[in-house]
Design a protein around this nucleic acid. Sequence first.
DNA 1: TAAAAACACTCAAACGTTTGCGTAGAATAT
DNA 2: ATATTCTACGCAAACGTTTGAGTGTTTTTA
Lengths: 345, 345
Amino acid sequence: MTSKPVTIKQIAEILKISVSSVSRALHDHPSIGLTTRAKVKKLAGELNYDPNQTAISFQKGKTYTIGVILPELSEAFFSAAISAIEDTAYKRNYTILLAQSHDEQEKEKQLIEKMKNHRVDGLLISVAKTTSSFEHFDMLKRYNIPIVFFDRIPPIKNIHYVACNMETGSIEAVNYLLQKGHRSIGMINGPSTLAASGERKEGYIKAMIKNRLKFDPSLVVSCDLTEQDTQAALDTLLANKRRPTAIVTFNDYIYLYSIKHARNLKINIESELQFVSYANLPIINYMDYAPVASVEQFPYLQGQKAADILIDLLNAKSGSPDEVQAYYKVIVESQLVESKKKVAK
Amino acid sequence: MTSKPVTIKQIAEILKISVSSVSRALHDHPSIGLTTRAKVKKLAGELNYDPNQTAISFQKGKTYTIGVILPELSEAFFSAAISAIEDTAYKRNYTILLAQSHDEQEKEKQLIEKMKNHRVDGLLISVAKTTSSFEHFDMLKRYNIPIVFFDRIPPIKNIHYVACNMETGSIEAVNYLLQKGHRSIGMINGPSTLAASGERKEGYIKAMIKNRLKFDPSLVVSCDLTEQDTQAALDTLLANKRRPTAIVTFNDYIYLYSIKHARNLKINIESELQFVSYANLPIINYMDYAPVASVEQFPYLQGQKAADILIDLLNAKSGSPDEVQAYYKVIVESQLVESKKKVAK
DNA sequence: TAAAAACACTCAAACGTTTGCGTAGAATAT
DNA sequence: ATATTCTACGCAAACGTTTGAGTGTTTTTA
């Protein structure tokens, strides 16, 4: 026997009072006497009343829902981020509407449209790789739906975002290796089309210069992120006249390809060649040969901050009138994390 | 200048026709003339009209939204599943409302309540480890909100679910190793409190018996999934009078702990001891020492099927009256997948 | 003891859309 | 020429809730 959910109206009818009184009683409005208030709540409990959120959303013009658009849910970085977003949204009484763009601009556009129709209160977006025009973001401003971008930020003005500063991490990484005694440090970077590649290289160069060492361009080689190209990159580095004793890799996949190749070449990963990587795979620490250190980008923290900012924005909006005056630009510093020592317990 | 979204009413006013006509025109209702229909659509386009989904949901009592409750979004298995769920939901014009239980029964309960209030049309759930009572699931039946469980199925009757059959995979795994010439095959299993542990052991035993080999209980040891305990389990197996030449591990983490320990013991992973694992980490294939084969559980497929079933259910409901007569019980067969050969290209 | 204030409610509109029913006028059939 | 069927639209209710603006009572204040 399936029953329709009970409404405020039914409660009112049974108690012979008006719907408005029931509504107010449920919200502890002061103008309702304690006796009726108690009666209403009692009956509501007994009948298993629960407010119809769609009706409330509709009438208030607020859904307490935030839309999240990510490139790829199955990627470790984003799945950590979404986990954080959900957690903080839950804590602050919001629900999340989720969708993935699969890195396609067209789908991203459609999703934004859909989210708008669903009347999400705000949006959290990490933009698709292929996105090259940005009107669909601007459009939302006209409807007063705030967006907070994170990790992948579009190159447009007047936006809120939280991103990760790669330079700091890069500098730390190089410093760490220098301090460990390495003097020839290689880098297997990503393709130059990615903004991140540039930042990482910059960090590398700055660290070298700060340590009064000259920057040798031949020690920084880029690859297209495939295994094959990584192997080629490593070969290039190893053939360098100043053969590096340590290498900074663009991400964990590159790292894995590299050590596989290195081991095939009978190179001792612990003594001959050490690695520092940019973390994107939580699993790396479980491994037999982990990099000596990783630059952590804190996806959980980024997701959390982005969600918090958005919700702050939403709460503020109800109070003040319109027109945002300031834009949040939060930088999460990346940080070098030494791998856990393998202590035999 | 932020503007409120334009409504059907405004269009009606401008065109001097009634709201109902506008609504029908936009839906291509036959009772509206082609000229007015065209005019309406033209103006709607110009004004950037888009339907207020909250109003529609409210009035139709249907949100075209499905709730998804998972234990942990950042786990590889679930993030693959959610990715599939989102994809199929998107294809079939549904949106997903996402939340994670963090494996806590209490939170799971609250989330179900919240989802119900949000009037999701249906629910996809993978139940929390700690969940031991199940009334909160039954409750939804009374409201005619269908649930499809997946991967982690509660032990109750009359439910829809899609799960993975572990036995087949286990049998295949053992057969594979036998065929490779191994005669003493060990198993590092999970704790007996997990249903999966039982299934896997069953598969192991069946495979042995089918091959006319006797089952040696001392070759199956369980562990609590920690690194420490895994090491102990491996030690136990290695000390066995019939020292195994191959081992089936409960999951990829156990596998990683095992090879780490084995390598410390100077055991050659390729020649002395081979591993088959139950896949839960996509990354494993990138590794230097991958298991010779993995039992794949197809999280993407499971998620997809679960979503498809739910949406089928929802579409069917609109037609027929009430009362479900049959329950979907879909078993996705796990399957042994040989690791990619490491071909030097 | 009359006027003011406080209390405890009720009324009704509003949010945007859908949809069953009603009804002019035009076209068709008899 | 009248009756009938279309055609193309309008009316109004309904979905469940919130909320500003009343409205009778009772209590307080001067």
